[in-house]
Design a binder for these strands. Sequence first.
DNA 1: ATTATATTTGGTTATATTGCCAAATAACCA
DNA 2: TGGTTATTTGGCAATATAACCAAATATAAT
Lengths: 110, 110
Amino acid sequence: MDYRTHSRLSHRANIFKALAHPSRLLIVEELAKRERCVCELTEKIGADVSTVSKHLSVLKNAGIVSDEKRGAQVWYELQMPCVLSFFDCVERSITARAEFQLEVEREARS
Amino acid sequence: MDYRTHSRLSHRANIFKALAHPSRLLIVEELAKRERCVCELTEKIGADVSTVSKHLSVLKNAGIVSDEKRGAQVWYELQMPCVLSFFDCVERSITARAEFQLEVEREARS
DNA sequence: ATTATATTTGGTTATATTGCCAAATAACCA
DNA sequence: TGGTTATTTGGCAATATAACCAAATATAAT
């Protein structure tokens, strides 16, 4: 793989990596509804605030969310709404696979 | 986060995780053009065959590709073509961010 | 039958990720 | 001012990933 290709794909991989965690996916789903402060997201996720803060920093560095400080709180907003359409793609694939598995098992039984 | 939500998001995260590596993204791009055997992909990637084989197994376990053995070779095929449309989404975001950075720098200079 | 090619698997080492705690920072309130 | 709340950062321990080599397996070729 030449340097230029590797650089392009590494950049792209970083965005996938940022989304590759259940808590961060929950954050994205919540931010798709409306902006949220760290305390609200911490409540939803049920982990230590410091952990959630680090997850948010991963998403922010990838350009997926942005933050804005208002008073003592920091509010996060989704900056890449097109990830949501990929969730649909993933969901369809998961469903298709589950159905395929059932099919295989049905055939194995018969 | 309740158990059901966590399970759903973990599953989804596994798909993102499978795509979160430059070599695996290259594999997806190549398979988007046509099916490929392991040796062809190994050539393109420029890593040890065993490494490429393991990358392929990650993609296969995630349901992103499928494999078929023909003679001594194993041919891989893309099973989740909708990932390609997400690449566009990611690319647009990367470009938008790069332009934003330039803007910030321009303002800083003036 | 033996050799060569294609692919996967096991093992090891190096590196990256994740989670929590403690501490630092910042804004608000009494 | 002093205390409380919201958030981030540093550090550490546990776990997960990734790369290569060596070895195992399967097919093709001589």
